[in-house]
């Protein structure tokens, strides 16, 4: 184990890993990486590596858990035994039970569970490598995986932590800052600013809390853009392949002289383009091509946020009802 560093932030305002106070770590998001799952996402948040899979809506086992008017959502956060310095004993512990509970509660309200009575939506997140901020990384991946599974949602959920080191608020704590810092506050929110997860431990004054909450919201917004882009890229890639196949055959007459192997070359360029895109996922800015392609194709199920709006109105009132029942269900325990 490393020891507590003397200073977390140097005189230039730079943190031990080279970030400024309000910067998040590099994020890499890959969508649809597992073949058996209905939706999946691999996500790296700094050195955190997490894999999320979504199954469902599917039959509920055990049967007695099923709800006649809506789907139940189950969320399993699990840490691999090799994900941390000292081997973690496999299986659920109290921490992962709590993390699973609050994470499920962070997502459940965003899912149109009333569309799928008597069924279960299962979210599994495996932490393959842990480096501070696993619950937020897991939640980010889970949210993307749900979208990838085509589960109708009111919006994506994005999560990010804020903390305090050297009496300064910093966004997205790294391992040392988490271990030896003065406070840690993970939050999750929807793009329209509703906070769906909020935990805090350590020491924050009311004023620091207010500022921290704002910083964390800014972090969540950045994460949201990356989640959105990853989904857009993934699905535009899919439709691009389809549309190039169509246009390629149409264009044969015009382009044939210049490029005899039209279809294959088109495919090749697609592939290289895609490769670039994956590299680019960290940066929010340059997305000329992708933005265009997105318009061409689809918003499909990849983006649930906007599309479902008409329903939200109708369901807004009912939502509360649903909440209760789930509340009650949980008080069963």
């Amino acid at each position: 184990m490393t020891n507590k560093p003397e200073k977390f932030i140097d005189e230039n305002g730079i943190r031990s890993d080279g970030r400024r106070a309000n910067e998040i770590r590099d994020v890499k998001i890959e969508v649809g990486v597992l073949s058996r799952a209905d939706g999946s996402c691999y996500l790296e948040f700094g050195k955190n590596k997490v894999m999320a899979a979504v199954y469902g809506p599917r039959e509920v086992h055990p049967r007695h858990q099923q709800k006649s008017n809506r789907a139940i959502v189950r969320y399993k956060y699990n840490m691999a035994s090799f994900s941390v310095e000292d081997r973690k004993r496999p299986g659920p512990d109290r921490r992962s039970i709590e993390v699973s509970k609050v994470s499920r509660e962070a997502l459940e309200d965003q899912i149109f569970t009333e569309y799928f009575p008597k069924s279960a939506i299962d979210v599994f997140v495996e932490v393959l490598q842990a480096d501070a901020g696993t619950r937020t990384a897991a939640l980010n991946a889970a949210s993307v995986a749900l979208a990838d599974a085509g589960i109708p949602m009111r919006s994506l959920v994005s999560a990010c932590a804020v903390g305090k080191v050297d009496d300064t608020l910093v966004l997205d704590l790294n391992k040392d800052e988490d271990n030896y810092g003065q406070a840690d506050m993970p939050i999750a929110m929807t793009p329209d600013g509703k906070i769906t997860l909020l935990q805090m431990d350590g020491h924050l004054t009311e004023e620091e809390f207010r500022q921290g909450l704002e910083m964390a919201q800014e972090g969540c917004r950045q994460v949201y853009e990356m989640q959105r882009k990853a989904l857009m890229d993934h699905y535009s890639k899919k439709t691009e392949v389809l549309s190039t196949e169509v246009t390629a055959t149409e264009d044969v007459k015009e382009d044939a002289p210049g490029e005899p192997e039209d279809i294959t070359s088109a495919e090749v360029t697609e592939e290289t383009k895609d490769a670039e895109k994956i590299d680019d996922t960290n940066e929010t800015g340059d997305a000329e091509e992708t933005e265009d392609t997105v318009k061409v194709g689809d918003v499909e199920e990849s983006e649930d946020s906007g599309e479902e709006v008409p329903d939200t109105g109708e369901n807004a009132d009912e939502t509360d009802g649903q909440m209760d029942e789930s509340k009650e269900e949980s008080s069963n325990e």
């Binding site: 499920r104 509703k194 004054t205 809390f209 909440m323 789930s326």
Partner: peptide, 17 residues
């Protein structure tokens, strides 16, 4: 001293800032 030591949101709804 009136500073925060811990917080927990629980239940599946959401809250505004």
């Amino acid at each position: 001293e009136g500073a925060l030591a811990g917080m927990q949101k629980s239940g599946n709804g959401s809250l505004s800032p």
